[in-house]
């Protein structure tokens, strides 16, 4: 069903066509500018998190990538094909933030329909595998209208995986899921990465993004205001030392300076009971990057 795992050299090679390549992308809705020249690449097998406040342009970017929205300027390509073209749509799977399946349809019928539309010849084997993957095998004959929101969300994820897409665009995929469901999605994303599937994950859940994403792009006001690996975005927050006189904090100290710091304190007659290197969280990095922007500011 899915493509075989890509060799590591292929994943890392800069010559491989990006699964998603966005350059100088602009989008205006009337007088409102949603995207101001966004640049972003997602390589095969890479899991990129898209963060930003409401109205930052995240969903617009994802919708342009899957051809639902036409860009006002710039370029977007999916696996080398212009976004929105038949070739581009053949290469991607998409889960919208707000989606519904017809209430009268059964889970397996939904997947069968998408198999036909995607030109997948996976048949019943693929449907069974996908339903098993999202833990809906027992509900394969259940109507959508009889499913909980979380079950529908999982069915949506299975639908996005029909046909073995090379790029997966997920817009808030865990918004309706409980902690067990979220963990299942995280594990699924990791499996997809191993198989060379590129994922663009649009989510408000910073902890989730931090856990699974290789890179993060933070959008605010239609611009990428920060991008990089989560470890690059977080920064040093100093060192805490527990002494007989209490916890002392050295805000400018780094991990490399800890031995010297401890030596100086011991030399000064302090008794050391513990040392902790502090780093900022992705949440703090995110808040720094968006600078307290108002929701919906463009």
């Amino acid at each position: 069903m899915w493509p075989p795992p890509a060799p590591p050299s292929q994943i890392a090679s800069p010559r491989v066509t990006p699964a998603l390549s966005v350059a100088a992308l602009h989008k205006r809705y009337g007088r409102t500018t949603a995207l101001h020249g966004v640049d972003l690449d997602v390589e095969p097998g890479e899991l990129v998190g898209l963060l930003g406040p409401n109205g930052a342009g995240k969903s617009t970017l994802v919708k342009i990538a899957c051809g639902l929205v036409r860009p006002s300027g710039g370029q977007a390509q999916v696996c080398g094909a212009p976004a929105g073209s038949r070739e581009a749509r053949r290469a991607l799977g998409y889960l919208a933030e707000l989606f519904r399946f017809p209430g009268w349809a059964r889970a397996e019928e939904v997947l069968a329909l998408h198999q036909r539309l995607a030109g997948s010849d996976g048949g019943a084997v693929e449907r069974t595998e996908l339903l098993d993957l999202v833990d809906l095998l027992d509900a394969r004959g259940r109507r959508v209208e009889a499913m909980s929101k979380g079950m529908q969300q999982r069915l949506g994820i299975a639908q996005a995986l029909v046909g073995g897409p090379r790029l997966l665009l997920l817009d808030e995929p865990t918004s309706a899921l409980d902690p067990v469901g979220r963990r299942m999605v995280r594990e699924l994303l990791e499996r997809l990465r191993e198989r060379g599937v590129a994922v663009l994950l649009n989510s408000h859940l910073l902890s989730e993004v931090e856990l699974v994403c290789d890179r993060v792009a933070i959008l605010a006001g239609g611009r990428v205001v920060a991008a990089g690996r989560p470890s690059e975005l977080v920064h040093a927050g100093g060192v805490e030392v527990e002494t007989a006189g209490g916890v002392r904090r050295f805000a400018q100290a780094t991990r490399e300076q800890v031995p010297q710091l401890v030596a100086e304190l011991v030399g000064a007659g302090e008794q050391i009971y513990g040392v902790r290197v502090l780093t900022s969280s992705l949440e703090e990095a995110y808040l720094d990057a968006v600078g307290g922007r108002q929701e919906g500011a463009a």
Binding site: G67, L68, R89, A96, R100, P102, H114, L117
Partner: peptide
């Protein structure tokens, strides 16, 4: 508006 159309339109049919 109900979110029924988007999953169909992103498929490779015109």
């Amino acid at each position: 508006e109900r979110g029924l159309l988007q999953p169909l339109v992103v498929r490779p049919l015109g």
